[in-house]
């Protein structure tokens, strides 16, 4: 991540701290209300960007259901399709899924949906743990530029950046928000 995002220049603010909190609340509430009645449910966050959203979803669902919802994380490093052309060694993070995925509805959480390649990798990894009943994709932000035929099920914010701009969601930094960057 550090090597990928170095030398970025911020070119715009899509959502400031308050707007981000608001849209996260809305997104989490919308998804949680829809799935609170689902008996076999799990939440999985994509490392590292999807972790915060996954925690929020699992907490809200647990509140609505009155019982804990299994929460896990996938590190997709070893499933990347560009692993041999990065030019640096991507360090592997820990995948933590210590519950069965067979016949479970998985809410897969990530920060930004762009090319779809990360989500492809995450889905492949999930399927190595079992056969979920369904996988639903929940993202904080979505932008055009898909390279694979994948679409989100629940989106906090649609962003259309100028060519060459990146959309980054900062959740835990000193200054949270959704920002545009240019290299």
């Amino acid at each position: 991540m550090a090597e990928k995002n170095r030398d970025l220049i911020r070119t715009g603010v899509v959502a400031d701290r308050d707007r981000l909190e608001e849209l996260l609340d809305d997104l989490v509430e919308r998804v949680a209300r829809e799935y609170a009645g689902e008996p076999d449910l799990a939440v999985v966050g994509v490392r590292a960007g999807g972790e915060r959203l996954a925690h929020l979803l699992a907490d809200r669902l647990a509140g609505l259901k009155g019982s804990p919802v299994p929460l896990g994380f996938v590190d997709i490093t070893l499933y990347r399709d560009d692993i041999h052309r990065l030019g640096y060694l991507p360090e592997v993070g820990a995948t933590e899924i210590d519950f069965p995925l067979d016949d479970v509805v998985v809410l897969l959480a990530d920060d930004v949906l762009y090319t779809g390649r990360t989500v492809r990798a995450a889905i492949d990894e999930l399927i190595d743990f079992g056969r979920p009943k369904a996988i639903r994709l929940v993202v904080v932000a979505e932008r055009p530029g898909r390279e694979l035929p994948l679409q989100p099920d629940y989106v906090g914010l649609h962003v259309t950046p100028a060519p060459g701009e990146l959309v980054l969601v900062r959740l835990d930094d000193p200054e949270p928000g959704v920002f545009l960057y240019r290299r």
Partner: peptide
């Protein structure tokens, strides 16, 4: 954790 998975194989 890979050794605890159902499919003990990574595509890397």
């Amino acid at each position: 954790e890979v050794s605890t998975r159902a499919v003990k194989k990574l595509p890397a």
